[in-house]
Design a protein around this nucleic acid. Structure first.
Lengths: 238, 238
DNA sequence: TAATTCAACTTGTAAACACAAGTATCTATG
DNA sequence: CATAGATACTTGTGTTTACAAGTTGAATTA
């Protein structure tokens, strides 16, 4: 995988290291190369490397120890509630699949999952998509995402299969998640969810309505997630 | 108020600015002095100022805009613990009641809601309590709390009615919440929850299993919360 | 042998400099 | 008057240099 060329150096290093941690090049407990070694590796200076490490540390990927080095922690601090955790076994990336139900397309806003929209957002319309997340070929998440159609060139048509939406936004559009609000409730599966999850009528399902703020002022993502928590629970750190 | 002399410069600047924001010297929407102005004010160089601002921005106190300045945001990021939010109306404190179902008592650990316990925790036994939270005399939360029975003198017998457990722990035992993990799932109400919440069989309920870490090393609280999200959803900022 | 010291690492802090890029404002021009 | 452009701000990125402070392990010393 290559990286967008427009990114500043510290972001590039951050992306590379982050991906290496995610891919298992470095595993929990490992010592990252020293800052000076990373300088030589990436042909940048120490402040640049330090900025990348600052961010990794801040997000919980690594812990730094003066005089010792940067230790990989692996599990990043949850950005709200995002991660999935098996009740019986751990979820390996190899078992994770994303199936697109509705390809990204431009729609007018129907509603934004109980969050109120600004005038600009309403006028711009939204990019709408539906995805199903499967673990071991079993549907666990059903995900509706709505993004304001503001300055996202070539987003429609971009292949989102098995890609993290956040990764795409961060790497291609420099959009970073800054925070947000989420509302959680329990519902019973409607016909559609029954079909997706293969569960009977009356089956309890977790519903998350999320408004996700970004570094672009006033630009928020809205997502609604339904989760079948029979085998996998939603897990988050705070 | 003065500031510890041992702190590095960027931390001192951070503390000063943070306090000024909290005290209302700068209010939401205000433009902070420019980086160069802050340099002159505090007699440090721009990288030092920028490090302080980095941290303030990261914690949500300010938002920075290239070419414009740093705008005070005021509201710091939430701690990740979910609050309650009415689907119809806001929840005033006057309408909030806590009813003790099981007074704090010492038990042996039966289990810790799917979290594994350390040897020390197991040997110490736990303080167990059950509480019901009511809004407008309607049960919304049912809360089971388990606390390791380690160095908490006079905790048993303490009146917990309408008191925040966290407040009691912080004020009387200097225990501060540092972080934790929560697992969320949807279940159907069992007989007990049906009675508490006044809901029929098969009614969906949100279940949260939480492990809450404190500033005392290795000392964690465990809590299990059941929530009837018919009228009130769980809401959290991140 | 056991403890201490020292040297060679590591990350942390801080300065001074340069230029890029975004924003707002004033000014000259049509 | 309205618009385009220059300019003077702002924050963003990146380098270079220097030293402080914590950790580790090997060499030295008791």
């Amino acid at each position: 995988m290559e990286y967008a060329t427009g990114l500043p150096q510290h972001s590039k290093v951050y992306e590379i290291l982050r991906q290496h941690i995610n891919e298992g090049v470095y595993v929990e407990g490992d010592l990252l190369p020293s800052e000076n070694e990373l300088c030589a590796l990436h042909q940048v200076t120490r402040p640049t490397i330090r900025k990348a490490l600052d961010r990794l540390a801040n997000e919980g990927f690594i812990v730094r120890h003066q005089g010792k080095g940067s230790i990989v922690k692996g599990a990043p601090k949850g950005v709200g509630i995002l991660a999935m955790k098996g009740t019986t076994s751990a979820v390996g990336k190899e078992n994770l699949l994303t199936r697109i139900i509705v390809e990204p397309e431009i729609r007018s806003w129907s509603e934004a999952f109980s969050f109120s929209l600004s005038k600009v957002e309403l006028e711009s319309g939204c990019i709408y998509m539906e995805r199903l997340r499967l673990v071991n070929n079993k549907a666990v998440f059903f995900d509706i995402t709505m993004i304001p159609n503001i300055n996202l060139p070539r987003f429609i048509g971009r292949n989102m299969e098995n890609k993290s939406l956040f990764d795409v936004l961060r790497k291609n559009y420099r959009l970073e998640v800054k925070g947000g609000e989420q509302r959680i409730l329990a519902i019973t599966a409607d016909e559609r969810l029954q079909k997706f999850f293969g569960v009977p009528a009356g089956h309890p399902v977790v519903q998350l309505n999320r408004k996700i703020e970004t570094n672009r002022l006033g630009f928020c993502l809205y997502s609604q997630v339904f989760c079948n928590t029979d085998e996998f629970v939603l897990s988050g750190n705070f």
